[in-house]
Design a protein around this nucleic acid. Sequence first.
DNA 1: TTGACAGCATACCGACGCGTATGCAACCAC
DNA 2: GTGGTTGCATACGCGTCGGTATGCTGTCAA
Lengths: 213, 213
Amino acid sequence: MARSPEPADAPLSDAEQAILLAAATCFAERGFAATSVDEVARRMGYTKGRVYHYFRSKAELFIAAATYGIDRLVAVVEPEALKPTPPAERLADMARAHVLTQIRDLPYHRVMLQGVTMVVRGATTPDERMMQERFVDRQRTYETIFRDVLEEGRKTGAFCGGNLSIQVKTLLLALNGACFWFSERDGQTPEEIGAIADQLVALTLDGMRGGGR
Amino acid sequence: MARSPEPADAPLSDAEQAILLAAATCFAERGFAATSVDEVARRMGYTKGRVYHYFRSKAELFIAAATYGIDRLVAVVEPEALKPTPPAERLADMARAHVLTQIRDLPYHRVMLQGVTMVVRGATTPDERMMQERFVDRQRTYETIFRDVLEEGRKTGAFCGGNLSIQVKTLLLALNGACFWFSERDGQTPEEIGAIADQLVALTLDGMRGGGR
DNA sequence: TTGACAGCATACCGACGCGTATGCAACCAC
DNA sequence: GTGGTTGCATACGCGTCGGTATGCTGTCAA
Protein backbone atom coordinates (compact mmCIF):
# COMPACT_ATOMS: atom_id res chain seq x y z
CA MET A 1 0.00 0.00 0.00
CA ALA A 2 2.35 2.64 -1.18
CA ARG A 3 1.42 6.31 -1.14
CA SER A 4 -0.90 5.81 1.75
CA PRO A 5 -1.85 9.00 3.56
CA GLU A 6 0.86 8.85 6.22
CA PRO A 7 0.66 5.91 8.54
CA ALA A 8 3.63 7.89 9.88
CA ASP A 9 5.44 4.94 11.39
CA ALA A 10 4.53 2.08 9.08
CA PRO A 11 7.50 -0.25 8.61
CA LEU A 12 9.25 0.26 5.31
CA SER A 13 9.11 -2.37 2.60
CA ASP A 14 12.31 -3.62 0.98
CA ALA A 15 11.75 -1.43 -2.05
CA GLU A 16 11.20 1.61 0.14
CA GLN A 17 14.33 0.86 2.14
CA ALA A 18 16.40 0.57 -1.02
CA ILE A 19 15.02 3.78 -2.47
CA LEU A 20 15.59 5.61 0.78
CA LEU A 21 19.22 4.51 0.94
CA ALA A 22 19.84 5.53 -2.65
CA ALA A 23 18.19 8.86 -2.04
CA ALA A 24 20.18 9.48 1.13
CA THR A 25 23.40 8.71 -0.71
CA CYS A 26 22.59 11.09 -3.54
CA PHE A 27 21.39 13.88 -1.25
CA ALA A 28 24.50 13.44 0.89
CA GLU A 29 26.79 13.68 -2.12
CA ARG A 30 25.19 16.50 -4.08
CA GLY A 31 22.74 18.20 -1.78
CA PHE A 32 18.96 18.37 -2.11
CA ALA A 33 18.63 20.86 -4.93
CA ALA A 34 21.35 19.35 -7.10
CA THR A 35 19.94 15.84 -6.85
CA SER A 36 17.37 14.75 -9.40
CA VAL A 37 14.87 12.03 -8.76
CA ASP A 38 15.99 10.40 -11.99
CA GLU A 39 19.45 10.16 -10.53
CA VAL A 40 18.21 8.50 -7.36
CA ALA A 41 16.38 5.97 -9.48
CA ARG A 42 19.27 5.29 -11.82
CA ARG A 43 21.60 4.62 -8.92
CA MET A 44 19.82 1.30 -8.40
CA GLY A 45 18.74 0.67 -11.96
CA TYR A 46 15.23 1.71 -11.01
CA THR A 47 13.09 4.14 -12.94
CA LYS A 48 11.59 7.40 -11.79
CA GLY A 49 8.12 5.91 -11.98
CA ARG A 50 9.13 3.35 -9.42
CA VAL A 51 10.35 6.01 -7.02
CA TYR A 52 7.17 8.05 -7.40
CA HIS A 53 5.18 4.93 -6.81
CA TYR A 54 6.48 4.81 -3.23
CA PHE A 55 7.15 8.47 -2.44
CA ARG A 56 4.95 11.36 -3.40
CA SER A 57 7.59 13.98 -3.95
CA LYS A 58 11.27 14.69 -3.83
CA ALA A 59 10.78 16.65 -0.63
CA GLU A 60 9.04 13.71 1.00
CA LEU A 61 11.98 11.50 0.08
CA PHE A 62 14.38 13.96 1.61
CA ILE A 63 12.48 14.37 4.83
CA ALA A 64 12.06 10.62 5.13
CA ALA A 65 15.81 10.11 4.85
CA ALA A 66 16.56 12.87 7.36
CA THR A 67 14.00 11.56 9.79
CA TYR A 68 15.40 8.06 9.48
CA GLY A 69 18.77 9.46 10.55
CA ILE A 70 17.54 11.34 13.60
CA ASP A 71 15.38 8.39 14.63
CA ARG A 72 18.40 6.11 14.69
CA LEU A 73 20.25 8.55 16.90
CA VAL A 74 17.42 8.92 19.35
CA ALA A 75 16.96 5.16 19.51
CA VAL A 76 20.59 4.60 20.42
CA VAL A 77 21.40 7.62 22.56
CA GLU A 78 18.26 8.01 24.65
CA PRO A 79 18.81 4.74 26.55
CA GLU A 80 22.28 5.94 27.49
CA ALA A 81 20.85 9.20 28.73
CA LEU A 82 18.49 7.37 31.08
CA LYS A 83 21.18 5.46 32.93
CA PRO A 84 21.80 6.68 36.49
CA THR A 85 25.53 7.22 36.05
CA PRO A 86 27.26 10.53 36.88
CA PRO A 87 26.67 13.21 34.23
CA ALA A 88 30.22 13.28 32.90
CA GLU A 89 30.33 9.55 32.37
CA ARG A 90 26.82 9.50 30.99
CA LEU A 91 27.59 12.24 28.49
CA ALA A 92 30.66 10.36 27.33
CA ASP A 93 28.61 7.23 26.72
CA MET A 94 26.00 9.23 24.85
CA ALA A 95 28.64 10.92 22.73
CA ARG A 96 30.30 7.66 21.88
CA ALA A 97 26.99 6.07 20.93
CA HIS A 98 26.22 9.12 18.79
CA VAL A 99 29.47 8.97 16.86
CA LEU A 100 29.40 5.22 16.29
CA THR A 101 25.82 5.30 15.08
CA GLN A 102 26.57 8.14 12.76
CA ILE A 103 29.56 6.48 11.16
CA ARG A 104 27.55 3.33 10.62
CA ASP A 105 24.89 5.12 8.54
CA LEU A 106 26.66 8.21 7.28
CA PRO A 107 24.41 9.08 4.31
CA TYR A 108 21.28 9.39 6.41
CA HIS A 109 23.03 11.59 8.93
CA ARG A 110 24.54 13.81 6.30
CA VAL A 111 21.04 14.34 4.96
CA MET A 112 19.86 15.00 8.47
CA LEU A 113 22.41 17.78 8.88
CA GLN A 114 21.29 19.36 5.63
CA GLY A 115 17.76 19.17 6.92
CA VAL A 116 18.65 21.16 10.00
CA THR A 117 19.96 24.09 8.02
CA MET A 118 17.30 23.92 5.36
CA VAL A 119 14.35 24.17 7.74
CA VAL A 120 12.67 23.22 4.60
CA ARG A 121 11.84 25.94 2.26
CA GLY A 122 10.03 24.03 -0.40
CA ALA A 123 7.90 21.86 1.79
CA THR A 124 4.72 23.00 0.15
CA THR A 125 2.05 20.36 0.54
CA PRO A 126 0.37 19.77 3.89
CA ASP A 127 1.83 16.27 4.04
CA GLU A 128 5.33 17.58 3.62
CA ARG A 129 4.71 20.24 6.22
CA MET A 130 3.59 17.57 8.64
CA MET A 131 6.58 15.36 8.02
CA GLN A 132 8.87 18.33 8.33
CA GLU A 133 7.41 19.39 11.62
CA ARG A 134 7.81 15.90 12.95
CA PHE A 135 11.45 15.98 11.90
CA VAL A 136 12.14 19.35 13.47
CA ASP A 137 10.46 18.14 16.61
CA ARG A 138 12.65 15.07 16.79
CA GLN A 139 15.66 17.26 16.23
CA ARG A 140 14.75 19.52 19.11
CA THR A 141 14.08 16.58 21.33
CA TYR A 142 17.48 15.18 20.58
CA GLU A 143 19.18 18.45 21.39
CA THR A 144 17.28 18.62 24.65
CA ILE A 145 18.59 15.23 25.71
CA PHE A 146 22.11 16.58 25.60
CA ARG A 147 21.15 19.92 27.08
CA ASP A 148 19.62 18.22 30.12
CA VAL A 149 22.73 16.21 30.85
CA LEU A 150 24.89 19.30 30.54
CA GLU A 151 22.62 21.21 32.88
CA GLU A 152 22.67 18.45 35.43
CA GLY A 153 26.45 18.21 35.22
CA ARG A 154 26.81 21.92 35.78
CA LYS A 155 25.15 21.62 39.16
CA THR A 156 27.63 18.99 40.27
CA GLY A 157 30.51 21.01 38.88
CA ALA A 158 31.32 18.45 36.23
CA PHE A 159 30.91 20.95 33.39
CA CYS A 160 31.86 24.56 32.98
CA GLY A 161 29.40 27.44 32.81
CA GLY A 162 28.72 30.03 30.14
CA ASN A 163 25.93 30.22 27.61
CA LEU A 164 24.25 26.83 27.61
CA SER A 165 22.93 27.05 24.05
CA ILE A 166 26.36 27.71 22.64
CA GLN A 167 27.74 24.86 24.66
CA VAL A 168 25.16 22.42 23.34
CA LYS A 169 25.59 23.59 19.76
CA THR A 170 29.35 23.32 19.96
CA LEU A 171 29.17 19.88 21.50
CA LEU A 172 26.85 18.50 18.86
CA LEU A 173 28.64 20.15 15.97
CA ALA A 174 31.96 18.66 17.01
CA LEU A 175 30.36 15.26 17.55
CA ASN A 176 28.90 15.47 14.06
CA GLY A 177 32.39 15.92 12.69
CA ALA A 178 32.43 12.54 11.01
CA CYS A 179 29.63 13.70 8.71
CA PHE A 180 31.99 16.36 7.38
CA TRP A 181 35.36 14.72 7.16
CA PHE A 182 34.99 10.98 7.50
CA SER A 183 35.83 8.97 4.44
CA GLU A 184 36.15 5.21 4.11
CA ARG A 185 39.91 5.56 3.94
CA ASP A 186 39.99 6.87 7.50
CA GLY A 187 39.54 3.40 8.84
CA GLN A 188 37.38 0.40 8.22
CA THR A 189 37.84 -2.12 11.00
CA PRO A 190 35.66 -1.76 14.06
CA GLU A 191 38.79 -1.13 16.13
CA GLU A 192 39.88 1.78 13.97
CA ILE A 193 36.41 3.27 14.02
CA GLY A 194 36.26 2.79 17.75
CA ALA A 195 39.53 4.65 18.14
CA ILE A 196 38.28 7.52 16.02
CA ALA A 197 35.12 7.72 18.09
CA ASP A 198 37.12 7.68 21.32
CA GLN A 199 39.34 10.51 20.20
CA LEU A 200 36.43 12.58 18.98
CA VAL A 201 34.60 12.08 22.26
CA ALA A 202 37.67 12.96 24.28
CA LEU A 203 38.40 16.11 22.27
CA THR A 204 34.84 17.27 22.53
CA LEU A 205 34.14 16.47 26.15
CA ASP A 206 37.26 18.03 27.55
CA GLY A 207 35.97 21.27 26.14
CA MET A 208 32.81 20.87 28.20
CA ARG A 209 34.75 20.35 31.42
CA GLY A 210 37.48 22.99 31.36
CA GLY A 211 37.30 26.34 33.06
CA GLY A 212 38.33 28.33 30.03
CA ARG A 213 41.69 29.93 29.52
CA MET B 1 37.46 46.13 -17.82
CA ALA B 2 35.09 43.50 -16.66
CA ARG B 3 35.37 39.89 -17.73
CA SER B 4 39.12 40.17 -18.07
CA PRO B 5 40.91 36.85 -18.33
CA GLU B 6 41.69 36.49 -14.65
CA PRO B 7 43.97 39.14 -13.26
CA ALA B 8 43.38 36.86 -10.28
CA ASP B 9 43.98 39.53 -7.67
CA ALA B 10 42.70 42.66 -9.35
CA PRO B 11 40.87 44.85 -6.83
CA LEU B 12 37.13 44.60 -7.13
CA SER B 13 35.07 47.54 -8.37
CA ASP B 14 32.11 48.75 -6.35
CA ALA B 15 29.70 46.97 -8.64
CA GLU B 16 31.63 43.74 -8.32
CA GLN B 17 31.73 44.06 -4.55
CA ALA B 18 27.99 44.60 -4.41
CA ILE B 19 27.27 41.64 -6.67
CA LEU B 20 29.61 39.42 -4.70
CA LEU B 21 27.92 40.28 -1.44
CA ALA B 22 24.47 39.65 -2.87
CA ALA B 23 25.65 36.35 -4.31
CA ALA B 24 27.26 35.29 -1.04
CA THR B 25 24.07 36.08 0.83
CA CYS B 26 21.93 34.08 -1.58
CA PHE B 27 24.32 31.12 -1.69
CA ALA B 28 24.54 31.14 2.09
CA GLU B 29 20.78 31.13 2.46
CA ARG B 30 19.76 28.63 -0.21
CA GLY B 31 22.91 26.83 -1.28
CA PHE B 32 24.56 26.87 -4.67
CA ALA B 33 22.16 24.73 -6.66
CA ALA B 34 19.01 26.33 -5.30
CA THR B 35 20.19 29.86 -6.01
CA SER B 36 19.43 31.37 -9.39
CA VAL B 37 21.47 34.13 -10.94
CA ASP B 38 18.25 36.06 -11.47
CA GLU B 39 17.68 35.96 -7.75
CA VAL B 40 21.15 37.30 -6.99
CA ALA B 41 20.49 40.15 -9.36
CA ARG B 42 17.01 40.94 -8.08
CA ARG B 43 18.29 41.14 -4.51
CA MET B 44 19.85 44.49 -5.38
CA GLY B 45 17.45 45.57 -8.09
CA TYR B 46 20.02 44.61 -10.69
CA THR B 47 19.36 42.50 -13.75
CA LYS B 48 20.92 39.25 -14.80
CA GLY B 49 22.68 40.97 -17.66
CA ARG B 50 24.49 43.16 -15.20
CA VAL B 51 25.71 40.19 -13.24
CA TYR B 52 26.94 38.39 -16.33
CA HIS B 53 28.66 41.57 -17.37
CA TYR B 54 31.02 41.20 -14.42
CA PHE B 55 31.11 37.45 -13.84
CA ARG B 56 31.28 34.85 -16.52
CA SER B 57 29.28 32.13 -14.83
CA LYS B 58 27.41 31.18 -11.71
CA ALA B 59 30.24 28.90 -10.69
CA GLU B 60 32.72 31.75 -10.99
CA LEU B 61 30.53 33.86 -8.75
CA PHE B 62 30.41 31.13 -6.18
CA ILE B 63 34.12 30.47 -6.16
CA ALA B 64 34.83 34.19 -5.96
CA ALA B 65 32.66 34.50 -2.87
CA ALA B 66 34.21 31.45 -1.23
CA THR B 67 37.72 32.65 -2.00
CA TYR B 68 36.94 36.06 -0.60
CA GLY B 69 35.98 34.35 2.66
CA ILE B 70 39.09 32.25 3.00
CA ASP B 71 41.29 35.18 2.00
CA ARG B 72 39.90 37.27 4.83
CA LEU B 73 40.65 34.51 7.30
CA VAL B 74 44.20 34.04 6.12
CA ALA B 75 44.79 37.79 6.22
CA VAL B 76 43.71 38.04 9.83
CA VAL B 77 44.90 34.76 11.30
CA GLU B 78 48.30 34.33 9.68
CA PRO B 79 49.83 37.34 11.46
CA GLU B 80 48.74 35.85 14.78
CA ALA B 81 50.36 32.57 13.85
CA LEU B 82 53.69 34.27 13.26
CA LYS B 83 53.96 35.83 16.71
CA PRO B 84 56.59 34.19 18.95
CA THR B 85 54.22 33.47 21.83
CA PRO B 86 53.81 30.01 23.39
CA PRO B 87 51.71 27.67 21.23
CA ALA B 88 48.71 27.52 23.54
CA GLU B 89 48.43 31.28 23.77
CA ARG B 90 49.09 31.68 20.07
CA LEU B 91 46.41 29.18 19.13
CA ALA B 92 43.94 30.99 21.36
CA ASP B 93 44.67 34.28 19.62
CA MET B 94 44.33 32.65 16.21
CA ALA B 95 41.06 31.05 17.19
CA ARG B 96 39.66 34.28 18.50
CA ALA B 97 40.67 36.15 15.36
CA HIS B 98 39.07 33.40 13.29
CA VAL B 99 35.74 33.56 15.06
CA LEU B 100 35.54 37.34 15.11
CA THR B 101 36.37 37.60 11.42
CA GLN B 102 33.83 34.98 10.58
CA ILE B 103 31.01 36.62 12.47
CA ARG B 104 31.79 39.94 10.81
CA ASP B 105 31.32 38.53 7.29
CA LEU B 106 29.14 35.51 7.80
CA PRO B 107 27.75 35.10 4.26
CA TYR B 108 31.16 34.73 2.66
CA HIS B 109 32.23 32.18 5.22
CA ARG B 110 29.07 30.18 4.91
CA VAL B 111 29.73 29.99 1.18
CA MET B 112 33.31 29.02 1.93
CA LEU B 113 32.14 26.09 4.02
CA GLN B 114 29.87 24.92 1.22
CA GLY B 115 32.83 25.18 -1.09
CA VAL B 116 34.85 22.82 1.03
CA THR B 117 32.31 20.04 0.76
CA MET B 118 31.38 20.68 -2.82
CA VAL B 119 34.90 20.47 -4.23
CA VAL B 120 33.04 21.95 -7.05
CA ARG B 121 31.52 19.49 -9.36
CA GLY B 122 30.35 21.73 -12.11
CA ALA B 123 33.52 23.73 -12.51
CA THR B 124 33.70 22.98 -16.20
CA THR B 125 35.65 25.72 -17.92
CA PRO B 126 39.42 26.03 -17.51
CA ASP B 127 38.97 29.38 -15.79
CA GLU B 128 36.68 27.89 -13.22
CA ARG B 129 39.06 25.00 -12.69
CA MET B 130 41.86 27.45 -12.06
CA MET B 131 39.88 29.52 -9.60
CA GLN B 132 38.72 26.40 -7.85
CA GLU B 133 42.23 25.05 -7.48
CA ARG B 134 43.37 28.33 -6.06
CA PHE B 135 40.55 28.18 -3.54
CA VAL B 136 41.32 24.61 -2.50
CA ASP B 137 44.94 25.56 -2.16
CA ARG B 138 44.13 28.47 0.11
CA GLN B 139 41.94 26.20 2.14
CA ARG B 140 44.74 23.68 2.62
CA THR B 141 47.16 26.43 3.50
CA TYR B 142 44.82 27.70 6.16
CA GLU B 143 44.43 24.27 7.68
CA THR B 144 48.19 23.87 7.72
CA ILE B 145 48.61 27.05 9.74
CA PHE B 146 46.59 25.51 12.54
CA ARG B 147 48.15 22.10 12.12
CA ASP B 148 51.62 23.54 12.59
CA VAL B 149 50.74 25.28 15.83
CA LEU B 150 49.17 22.10 17.16
CA GLU B 151 52.23 20.10 16.25
CA GLU B 152 54.53 22.57 17.92
CA GLY B 153 52.40 22.61 21.03
CA ARG B 154 52.44 18.85 21.24
CA LYS B 155 56.20 18.89 21.62
CA THR B 156 55.98 21.23 24.57
CA GLY B 157 53.18 19.20 26.08
CA ALA B 158 50.65 21.99 25.66
CA PHE B 159 48.31 19.84 23.58
CA CYS B 160 47.26 16.22 23.80
CA GLY B 161 48.24 13.52 21.30
CA GLY B 162 46.17 11.28 19.07
CA ASN B 163 45.47 11.52 15.37
CA LEU B 164 46.55 14.99 14.31
CA SER B 165 44.21 15.24 11.32
CA ILE B 166 41.18 14.52 13.43
CA GLN B 167 42.34 17.05 15.96
CA VAL B 168 42.71 19.77 13.33
CA LYS B 169 39.38 18.98 11.71
CA THR B 170 37.60 19.00 15.04
CA LEU B 171 39.21 22.25 16.06
CA LEU B 172 38.26 24.05 12.86
CA LEU B 173 34.78 22.61 12.70
CA ALA B 174 34.00 23.78 16.22
CA LEU B 175 35.49 27.18 15.52
CA ASN B 176 33.28 27.43 12.44
CA GLY B 177 30.27 26.94 14.65
CA ALA B 178 29.04 30.48 14.18
CA CYS B 179 28.47 29.75 10.49
CA PHE B 180 25.95 27.13 11.51
CA TRP B 181 24.08 28.58 14.43
CA PHE B 182 24.80 32.28 14.71
CA SER B 183 21.88 34.57 14.05
CA GLU B 184 21.66 38.29 14.54
CA ARG B 185 19.50 37.75 17.58
CA ASP B 186 22.38 36.06 19.37
CA GLY B 187 23.95 39.40 20.06
CA GLN B 188 24.78 42.56 18.20
CA THR B 189 27.06 44.69 20.33
CA PRO B 190 30.80 44.14 20.02
CA GLU B 191 30.86 43.10 23.67
CA GLU B 192 28.26 40.39 23.18
CA ILE B 193 30.04 39.12 20.10
CA GLY B 194 33.32 39.19 21.95
CA ALA B 195 31.83 37.12 24.74
CA ILE B 196 30.50 34.58 22.28
CA ALA B 197 33.90 34.34 20.65
CA ASP B 198 35.59 33.90 24.00
CA GLN B 199 33.31 31.08 25.02
CA LEU B 200 33.68 29.35 21.70
CA VAL B 201 37.45 29.60 21.89
CA ALA B 202 37.50 28.32 25.45
CA LEU B 203 35.23 25.37 24.70
CA THR B 204 37.25 24.40 21.68
CA LEU B 205 40.74 24.85 23.05
CA ASP B 206 40.19 22.96 26.27
CA GLY B 207 39.49 19.98 24.08
CA MET B 208 42.91 20.36 22.51
CA ARG B 209 44.64 20.39 25.88
CA GLY B 210 43.03 17.62 27.87
CA GLY B 211 44.38 14.12 28.25
CA GLY B 212 41.17 12.38 27.31
CA ARG B 213 38.83 10.72 29.71
C1' DT C 1 30.96 65.23 -35.16
C1' DT C 2 32.07 60.70 -34.89
C1' DG C 3 33.59 56.58 -33.80
C1' DA C 4 34.63 53.27 -30.02
C1' DC C 5 33.85 51.28 -25.92
C1' DA C 6 31.99 50.58 -21.20
C1' DG C 7 27.81 49.47 -18.92
C1' DC C 8 24.12 47.90 -18.80
C1' DA C 9 18.62 45.95 -20.11
C1' DT C 10 15.83 42.73 -22.60
C1' DA C 11 14.55 38.91 -25.19
C1' DC C 12 15.40 34.55 -26.10
C1' DC C 13 17.22 29.58 -26.64
C1' DG C 14 18.13 25.09 -25.14
C1' DA C 15 18.42 21.91 -21.45
C1' DC C 16 16.96 19.95 -17.46
C1' DG C 17 13.95 18.22 -14.03
C1' DC C 18 9.55 17.55 -11.28
C1' DG C 19 5.45 15.52 -11.36
C1' DT C 20 1.63 13.16 -13.94
C1' DA C 21 -0.86 10.48 -17.21
C1' DT C 22 -1.09 6.39 -19.37
C1' DG C 23 -0.20 1.69 -20.40
C1' DC C 24 0.70 -2.92 -19.25
C1' DA C 25 1.92 -7.31 -17.16
C1' DA C 26 1.31 -10.20 -13.24
C1' DC C 27 -1.39 -11.71 -9.58
C1' DC C 28 -5.18 -12.30 -6.98
C1' DA C 29 -10.57 -12.98 -5.64
C1' DC C 30 -14.59 -15.07 -7.01
C1' DG D 1 -12.22 -16.30 -17.20
C1' DT D 2 -13.00 -11.94 -15.66
C1' DG D 3 -12.83 -7.84 -13.04
C1' DG D 4 -9.89 -5.44 -9.89
C1' DT D 5 -5.61 -4.30 -7.81
C1' DT D 6 -0.47 -4.02 -7.32
C1' DG D 7 3.80 -2.72 -9.24
C1' DC D 8 5.97 -0.90 -12.06
C1' DA D 9 7.87 1.48 -17.20
C1' DT D 10 7.42 5.12 -20.59
C1' DA D 11 6.31 9.44 -22.39
C1' DC D 12 5.33 13.98 -21.93
C1' DG D 13 3.77 18.70 -20.26
C1' DC D 14 5.37 22.59 -18.37
C1' DG D 15 7.99 25.55 -15.54
C1' DT D 16 12.66 27.06 -14.40
C1' DC D 17 17.22 28.41 -15.09
C1' DG D 18 22.00 29.08 -17.12
C1' DG D 19 23.90 31.42 -20.59
C1' DT D 20 23.93 34.28 -24.99
C1' DA D 21 22.73 37.62 -28.52
C1' DT D 22 21.40 42.00 -29.36
C1' DG D 23 20.58 46.62 -28.82
C1' DC D 24 20.49 50.95 -26.47
C1' DT D 25 22.67 54.86 -23.86
C1' DG D 26 26.17 57.65 -21.95
C1' DT D 27 31.03 58.96 -22.08
C1' DC D 28 35.37 60.09 -23.79
C1' DA D 29 39.01 60.62 -27.11
C1' DA D 30 40.35 62.25 -31.64
